[in-house]
């Protein structure tokens, strides 16, 4: 594309988001953001600062009121629902504040869900990778457990593996530690950092916990829908480099 391409997993240009209603509420104002390959980016902000909206727009779950969104060097505006779903399934992974594992599936099956959605072939191809990832997050002996048999931290780790199951370029995490105590929360955050280094997947983690920001390659601070700070703490370390 126009810019050097390959190393940019997502790009936002002059993105505005206004929630329509009796009183239109602006959530994002003129956001310009690029996420590099393998980068670990933390978006800091108080609640209501627009950070979840930002994440949803990057994740193609929401559309901007104006501005352009490029994902995998493709203009999000021109995608139909099927393409968005396909990109969410193959290019991105999601981690939410609550793990949202399906209770009727085992740990391994839950982690494999994005592959299952993509089809049998993908599921077979990625099965070993997912098992390996589960081993690395310390759940190798729990593959056939039900989510209800795991602790909150363990469940969130399954959710992280699920986000990585399709070998995505980008993982989007919305307050992934928000529902955990600080010890477990930090462990989960460390896990993501570890996965980022191991797999070279870019992470965009939204949080209001400033302690976590210290670990990031780059920190973006949102206030009232605007980026007020964009600090590069250290260059992105990708697996391949």
């Amino acid at each position: 594309m126009q810019q050097s391409g390959g190393d940019i997993v997502c790009r936002l240009e002059h993105v505005d988001k206004v929630y329509e209603g009796a009183v239109p509420t602006p959530a994002l104002l003129d956001i310009n953001l690029q996420v590099q390959r393998g980068e670990f980016l933390v978006v800091l902000g108080a609640s209501g600062s627009g950070k979840t909206t930002l994440l949803n727009i990057i994740g193609l779950l929401d559309t901007p009121t104006s501005g352009k969104v490029w994902i995998a060097e493709r203009n999000a505006e021109q995608m139909d629902e099927e393409e968005r779903a396909a990109l969410r399934s193959r290019y991105m992974g999601f981690v939410f504040q609550f793990h949202y594992l399906l209770p009727e599936f085992t740990v391994l099956e839950n982690a494999l869900l994005p592959c299952k959605i993509a089809g049998k072939q993908v599921e077979e191809q990625n099965r070993e990778l997912v098992k390996e990832l589960l081993h690395r997050v310390g759940l190798g002996d729990r593959l056939n457990y039900r989510p209800s048999q795991l602790s909150g931290g363990q469940q969130q780790r399954v959710a992280i593996v699920r986000a990585l199951a399709n070998n995505p370029e980008l993982v989007l995490a919305d307050e992934p530690t928000g529902n955990l105590d600080s010890k477990n929360g930090f462990a989960v955050f460390e896990m993501m950092r570890f996965m980022n280094r191991q797999t070279g997947t870019a992470f965009v983690v939204v949080t209001h916990d400033e302690r976590l920001a210290q670990e990031a390659d780059r920190v973006v601070v949102l206030e009232d829908g605007r980026i007020v700070k964009d600090m590069l703490q250290r260059p992105a370390q990708t697996h391949e480099l």
Binding site: E81, R88, F96, F98, L102, R162
Partner: peptide, 16 residues
């Protein structure tokens, strides 16, 4: 509803 949302977020299509 949540389960449906999560499935959609991780790539399930409307048809699925």
């Amino acid at each position: 509803l949540r389960e449906i949302g999560i499935l959609k977020a991780i790539g399930a299509t409307n048809r699925q």
